[in-house]
Amino acid sequence: MDLALLRTFVTVHRAGSFTRAAALLGLSQPAVTSQIRTLERQVGRPLFLRRPRGVTPTTMGDELAHKAAPHLDALVEIAETGLDEDSSLRTLHLAGPPEFTAERALPALTDLCGEDGQGLTLRASFGTAEEVLEGLAAGHHDLAISTARPRGALLTTTPLCDEEHVLVAAPRWAGRIDTGRLRRDGAAALEDLPVMEVHESLPLVSRYWAAVFDSRPAASGTVVVPDLRAVLACAIAGAGLAVLPRYLCAAALERGEVVAPHEPTVPPLRTYVLVVRAGTLAMPHVARAHDRLLGAAAEWC
């Protein structure tokens, strides 16, 4: 059985689409279709059921993928290890949310780069969870950091760390909050205060309000800017309330530039995951970065 046909088959099985598999393989969609038909003729059974949107494997297709995929991944690992040893530099394309990627992920990976590193150059992209997962699935990135878990067999996830969220405000705004009423009435005590966020939908504020106050925020955002570092800067400048990751605002809290007017017994958490395309951890440069981030995350939690 032709290994090239098996490689195409496994890619289609993981991608769930001839079109997406073609993009990942650098082939045309008709070429992928032709290879799958050739393989189906060789095995004498259909391997996929064609659907209006993509394909789903038959029982035979699942069985063949289960048998073939580990061996193909092992061959990729052997080939990539040789390439890694022969090449002075390999490039890792990383994607994730701007704040977490800039403040935590990139510093953790820098010792893999440069003259004293392990032959790695790094290219980073920022985006929403949806954007980075779509880019990873399309082959634009090698490794993604996300707060959303993808569906399907193409992308696989590993839990990375939990992020604690904190309600913060500049001292002049915090001083206007009746803490007794806040404990008694919850979010009603905050209705008249301006709120800052990264999106009009108020994702962090809404999550905090739901988890801590069992309610929804009453007002729209006074300042909306798609970077939590900018939200923190606005909070320090006195623009209003914000919900921020503790790692991002810890220094400002310690310096008294912002305060936490409410500390719930169980703070809201958001979980980050590392995401790769199935089989790509066989590539040494991807595996090294993946392992380095997992090791660093043990100290972040």
Rank of each mutant, 00 (worst) to 15 (best):
M1Y: 06
R7G: 10
T8H: 03
F9I: 09
F9E: 02
R14Q: 14
R14N: 14
A15F: 09
G16F: 02
A22H: 05
S34Y: 14
L39M: 05
R50E: 08
P52R: 03
K67C: 07
A68T: 02
A68F: 09
P70W: 00
H71D: 13
L72T: 07
A74I: 04
E80T: 04
E80V: 06
T81K: 11
T81P: 05
E85V: 13
S87I: 06
T91I: 12
L92T: 03
L92V: 12
G96C: 10
F100Y: 11
L106H: 03
D116C: 06
T121E: 15
R123V: 14
A124W: 06
F126A: 14
T128N: 02
G135E: 04
A138W: 02
H140E: 14
R151K: 07
A153T: 06
L155F: 10
L155M: 12
L160D: 04
V166E: 11
A174Y: 09
I177E: 06
R181Q: 14
R181C: 12
L182H: 01
L182R: 07
D185T: 08
L190D: 06
E191M: 13
D192P: 01
H199E: 03
L202E: 05
L204G: 01
Y208C: 04
W209A: 12
V212P: 04
R216W: 14
P217V: 08
A218L: 13
G221E: 06
D227Y: 07
D227F: 11
A230M: 12
V231K: 01
A235F: 04
A239T: 12
G240L: 06
Y247P: 01
E254N: 08
R255A: 10
V259Q: 10
A260S: 15
P261W: 08
V266Q: 12
T271N: 07
V276R: 12
T280C: 13
A282G: 15
A287R: 15
H290S: 04
D291N: 12
R292P: 03
L293D: 01
G295F: 03
A298G: 05
A298M: 15
W300C: 08
